[in-house]
Design a protein around this nucleic acid. Structure first.
Lengths: 327, 327
DNA sequence: TTGTATGCGTTATCAG
DNA sequence: CTGATAACGCATACAA
C-alpha cells in the first residue's frame, strides 16, 4: 500500500536514505536509521519488487520445474529452498505435469524477468532447446537430465546404481529380469545401460521382449504389468526405473494373484517415502535427496553470480536399500 | 533482452503503438500491426513483467499454498492452474511444509506486489490472521480451512462425509471405532464431529482413549499406530482423517502382524491416487479434486475482479469409496 | 552522512 | 489511427 516516498516523508528523510536503510551496506547515521525503521514499521511498508527488479534487473527468485507433485520431491525441494533462502533467493515451483508446453510457458518467466534462473527436476525439452536456454540463463538439471546438454547437472550415477540393483537380483538367482523403463530421457537410458551391463556381466542375454517402455507415470506402472500378463508372461524379476512406476505395477500383479517376493522379485529406483511404507516395502536405489536439492541450488548460484561460470556435472552417492520385494 | 523501445524503433512506430499491439483491444491499422509483430518476432521480444506490473499494479499471478508435495494435490492444482490460465492468470506454487513462517514469508509476495491473490490448500494461520489478510487481498481456502474465517472456502461437507464413513464401519458390525485425527484446523474438527455424531446415532459411546491426535504427516501415521499398540490395544476399526496418515499406519500395524481387513477395518479420507494403489486398497472418502481446484480459482477470480465481492462457502459433493480395508 | 535527479520498461492519457 | 509523455516504485551516481 505504502511506498518508499511515504516512508521517507514520515521519517523526514529522502527516499535515498530509506533505500539505504532497507538494503543495508551503506553508511547511515544510527539515529536516522532508527527514524526510518520506525516509519517503515508504522506504515507497514514492504518494498515493491517490481520497482526494485526493474531498477536492478535482478529478481532474487529461482524457478523449480516439477513434473508432478509427489513426496519424493518434497524433501528435495525443501532442501533446495532452504539453501536458496540462505543465499537470499526465494523459490517458485512450476508444476509442469511433464507437459512441454506448460514447461515452455513457465520458462517465459525468465524472459519476462520474473526469475533469475531455473532448476529442472525433469524436462521435455530437447538437448538443443536446453542448450539454447542455458546460453541465456542460469540452468541446472537435477535427478533427471537430457543427454548432451551443457547445463549444470546434479544426479547420482544412474548407470552404476542400476548395475548394482540388477546385480542384486542376479545374485538372488534370478535369470529372467524384465526392465520397466522409459525411452528418451538421459536418465532412463543410463539406467537401462546399467541394466544391460549387469546382464552382460553375468553372461545373461538381453531379451527385447522383457523390456517394457512407457512414460514415467503411475498409470504406466499398471499398464506395463498388464501388458506383460497379456503377453502371457509371468514376472520373475523386475528392475523398475522408478518407485512411482513400481507401486502401481505391484498392485496390478497383486490383482492377478501375483505377490512379491513370493512370486517374483522387484528392485526399484528413487527411495521415495512410499517405498518404505508400501506393503511389501520396496527394494530400491535411494537417491540422496537432501544433498541433491542443496547442490542443485549451489551449482545454480555459482552461475547466477558469474555468467562465465563453467557448468559442472555433480555425481552424488546412491544407496541400494534391499527390503521386502526381493527374495 | 530487447525492450519495447527497440521494437518500436525497428518497426518504425512509437512505443505506444507497440503497446497497443501487444495488449490488443485498441484499434491499430492492420499494416502497422503486421510491422510491429514482425519486429517483435525478429527481436524475440518478451514484455518485462516488472515494468508492466509497476505500471498497472496487476501481476496476473496467483499463489497456491501447498503444505506438502503429494499426488493428492497434483490433479487439484492442475485443475486450478488450467482454470487460471483460461482466465489469463498464471499460478505459482508455494511449498510451505506446514510451516507458519514459510507461509508468512511467501505471503510477502502479496505485499511485494508479485502476486494478486492466494489460494490456501492448508494453513497454519489463525482465523484472525486469515481475516486480516483477506481484508487486504483476495483469499480462498480449499480443502482445509480455519474455522471462523471470512475468506472464500471450497470444500466437501467434512462432517457429513465423516458421518457416512464411520456409519459404514458401524454397519459392518464394528463397535470400537478409533479416530486418527488432528486438533486445531477446522477441517479436522468437522471430521471429528462427523465421527462423534455417527457414534452417537448408533448409540455407541465415545471413548476418549480411542481418539489419537497428532499432526497431518506421514510419520504421524506410524506414530499413532505405535501409540495404540503400546497402550496394549489392538485396532478393531479406525476412521482416519487422511490417506496420508492411513498408509503408514497400515504399514506399522502390518509390521506387528496386524492386517486389514483380516484383523481390523479402516476407512480413510481424501481419495488420493495412493489409496487405490496400496495393498490393501483403502476405503476412503473421495474428494472431487478436479472440481475443487476449478472452483477455488473461480471463487478467487470473482474477488480479484471485484473488491466488494462477498466471499462464499462452496460445498462440493464427496463420494465414499469402499475398497479392501473394510470387512 | 544525506539529498537530488535519473532511468529501468511499461501503460495510459491526451493531443493531434 | 498514432505519437509524445507522464507516472508507477525503486536504487544509485553524483553532488553537497
Amino acid at each position: 500500500m505504502s511506498n518508499i516516498k511515504e516512508v521517507a516523508a514520515r521519517a523526514g528523510v529522502s527516499v535515498a536514505t530509506v533505500s539505504r536503510v532497507i538494503n543495508g551496506g551503506s553508511v547511515v547515521r544510527e539515529s536516522t536509521r532508527k527514524k526510518v525503521e520506525a516509519a517503515i514499521r508504522e506504515l507497514r511498508y514492504s518494498p515493491n519488487f517490481s520497482g526494485r527488479s526493474l531498477r536492478t534487473s535482478k529478481t532474487g527468485k529461482i524457478l523449480v520445474m516439477l513434473p508432478s507433485l509427489k513426496s519424493f520431491y518434497s524433501t528435495l525441494v525443501a532442501s533446495t529452498e532452504k539453501t536458496a533462502k540462505a543465499h537470499g533467493y526465494s523459490m517458485l515451483i512450476c508444476h509442469t505435469k511433464s507437459d512441454k508446453e506448460a514447461e515452455k510457458s513457465y520458462l517465459e518467466l525468465l524472459k519476462n524477468k520474473m526469475a533469475d534462473g531455473v532448476i529442472f527436476l525433469s524436462t521435455r525439452l530437447t538437448a538443443a532447446e536446453m542448450n539454447t536456454l542455458a546460453r541465456e540463463y542460469p540452468v541446472v538439471q537435477c535427478c533427471e537430465y537430457v543427454r548432451g546438454s551443457n547445463t549444470g547437472v546434479v544426479s547420482v550415477d544412474d548407470e552404476a546404481a542400476s548395475f548394482e540393483a540388477v546385480t542384486a537380483l542376479i545374485a538372488r538367482g534370478h535369470k529372467r529380469i524384465s526392465l520397466f523403463g522409459a525411452e528418451r530421457v538421459g536418465t532412463a537410458s543410463d539406467r537401462e545401460a546399467g541394466y544391460r551391463r549387469a546382464l552382460a556381466s553375468a553372461g545373461l542375454p538381453v531379451d527385447r521382449e522383457e523390456i517394457y517402455y512407457d512414460n514415467h507415470s503411475a498409470e504406466s506402472g499398471r499398464r506395463r504389468a498388464r501388458r506383460m500378463l497379456e503377453a502371457g508372461r509371468k514376472p520373475e524379476a523386475i528392475f523398475s526405473i522408478s518407485d512411482i512406476i513400481s507401486l502401481p505395477a505391484l498392485r496390478e500383479f497383486y490383482e492377478h494373484g501375483l505377490l512379491c517376493p513370493r512370486d517374483f522379485s522387484l528392485v526399484s529406483f528413487d527411495g521415495s517415502e512410499e517405498s518404505s511404507v508400501s506393503i511389501p516395502a520396496l527394494s530400491t536405489v535411494e537417491q540422496p535427496r537432501e544433498a541433491m536439492g542443496r547442490e542443485a541450488f549451489l551449482e545454480l548460484y555459482n552461475r547466477l553470480n558469474d555468467p562465465d561460470y563453467e557448468a559442472r556435472i555433480i555425481r552424488l552417492p546412491h544407496r541400494l536399500v534391499l527390503r521386502e520385494t526381493i527374495r
